[in-house]
Design a protein around this nucleic acid. Structure first.
Lengths: 332, 332
DNA sequence: ACGGAATCATGAATCGATTCATGGTACGCC
DNA sequence: GGCGTACCATGAATCGATTCATGATTCCGT
């Protein structure tokens, strides 16, 4: 067994055929006699042959991998999303490269550059504000892309969840519970999710005949971690103005941090402060106070994103659903 | 702007130099006159040039990506591990392909084959029982690999955590709390982690002068999800024999499922049943009953794994640490 | 048994970046 | 001014799989 990998040439030599025939066995088995094919296949087995993906792609010009950039792989929301993507890609024998931008444009750029160099089949991104122009560069290279978790957007193919509806559902619920002063622990204001949920919140408040400025207090967090959620809440509680009676958190991780701070201060949930999260992660129901949360169809979202990319379709939009638990409802 | 990508040839043409010079600008900038370099760099910018990774790797024979297979990307333990890996790889400008085997040998094989074809620089795996021989195939192709979360093992480079110690710490603690009948919600028995923690548990029991057979009851779960944890507990509680007074769970997700079932049955934690998990995931302290858990240095583990691969070293072993919370301690 | 069609196998050309032996150029020194 | 030495740029060869025009073989009917 020689060191290093065997090439088609080695296989051809051993099987006593030409390289073209080996390639045919690999790519169009029908165009080859049964006997020849068996000889070649045996030679491949004996040499432990693996086709060289670089050479293959260089010549063929097409790749079988898709690049995926999510905001934070540590957040189960995004890994579920990735699973949905992977499921769809597996149906056409493609694979994915999963990267985490960590909300950092530099990292995002690094990965997009990597994808361009790799010549991936396509790119799926949960976009940040700086994303769009770079995607144009990719398209010019012939690499299509789909935005994920972005609402319908005529500029670019995208899948998303109707976060306006999500925000509306959450706030409508909190208003119905009697809350009139609500803290929105939001993400960066340049995130579309942040803005859409805000819009939904405002719609809900206005629909109730109230003034959004009176009811809603917004704190934009630079990143969506538990620590940031806690810090954001501290800032809001220690700041001037009346204390809110309810929190609408950008996601369950942020809600987790906020609830931690509430516990530190001895504030009880939901009597002193109600909390509604977003994403409905698998542990939401098991937290110290079971967390109300706006559920997103994570896997479907991923599947749809990959599907759009592969079938070259423009948009897909899903509907979120509020799950009410004890953190925002006395009765539970 | 032509469709498709620009090649070194295009750049050379536009800059009025040869392709060799363009390559030099890319790979040995010092071997090129400042003036020439600037011309070339400008041409690259104008053409939106990205070097073709396939061609590059085909010729150079070395890859800058590392393949990583973890058991379950949905588990934050593994994403933290991946972050550690990525951090180390970034220091040498490498990237990783992250895959989830889902405990499925078929999936694992698919990914390893992919890695072989891609000619990755190396492979990092959280091994299952079927893993080892396939890694031999890879080595024959010149692809090194490192086992992750596997204790010291003379056969193969590996990083790991001393799970014997982890099991010992957990059980020693439970025994000290007075428990004499402990349910070990274990993983598949062919996982080294499963066996080592069992061994540690037995050591702890014997060190206390007790009989392991009397004290320990083991349920092997086929997979490590919350649902499986719940099902495993149901099975154990509904089975014959005395009811345990404490649970040692294979990881925090399993513990989550078990605690869910305890709640369904109205059993209180820790008075009716104490629980100790493993991994100390970020939400462990925020659960309905804060969960005691054996903490692992996830990032360091990942960093070390990548480091061993890059520097060609054999082993690295870390020490876990039990974090005691209310789920196993009245006093908290 | 022979011509012609159909079926297979062949191998040179190709993809794009890298390498390295070779050829030029510029500069310093006597 | 001529020669030698660094210093740079050159471009053909190379990596391995694929493609396709071409050549070889088989097989059929008559």
């Amino acid at each position: 067994m020689t060191a290093g990998r065997a090439s088609v040439k080695d296989v051809a030599l051993r099987a006593g055929v030409s390289v073209g025939t080996v390639s045919n066995v690999l790519n169009r088995p029908d165009a080859v006699t049964e006997r020849t094919r068996e000889k070649v296949e045996q030679a491949m087995a004996e040499l432990n042959f693996h086709r060289n993906a670089s050479a293959r792609q260089l010549r063929a010009g097409v790749s079988h991998t898709v690049g995926v950039i999510v905001m934070d792989v540590g957040n189960p929301f995004y890994t579920e999303l990735a699973r949905g993507i992977e499921d769809r890609l597996a149906t056409v024998d493609h694979t994915l490269i999963l990267c985490s931008s960590d909300d950092d444009p530099v990292r995002e750029e690094r990965f997009l550059k990597l994808f361009a160099e790799q010549g991936v089949r396509g790119v799926l991104v949960t976009p940040m504000s700086s994303t769009a122009p770079r995607l144009g560069d990719l398209r010019r290279l012939g690499i299509p892309s789909v935005l994920m978790d972005s609402s319908r957007n005529t500029q670019h193919p995208s899948v998303g969840v109707d976060h306006i509806s999500g925000g509306r559902q959450a706030i409508t619920h909190l208003l119905a519970q009697g809350h009139r002063r609500i803290l929105y622990l939001a993400g960066p204001s340049d995130l579309q999710q942040t803005r859409h949920r805000l819009r939904g919140a405002i719609e809900a408040i206005q629909a109730a005949g109230l003034d959004a400025g009176d009811v809603l207090q917004v704190t934009n967090l630079p990143s969506l971690s538990a620590n940031e959620g806690q810090r954001g809440l501290i800032e809001a509680l220690d700041g001037p103005g009346p204390r809110p009676t309810a929190i609408f958190a950008m996601n369950d991780i942020v809600a987790l941090g906020a609830m931690r701070e509430l516990r530190v201060r001895g504030l009880s949930i939901p009597s002193d402060m109600a909390v509604v999260g977003y994403d409905d992660l698998y542990f939401a129901a098991e937290l110290m106070t079971p967390l109300s949360s706006v559920r997103q169809p994570m896997r479907q979202l991923g599947w749809a994103a990959a599907d759009l990319l592969l079938t070259d379709q423009p948009h897909d939009l899903f509907e979120p659903e509020l799950i009410v638990r004890a953190s925002s409802d006395f009765a539970r």
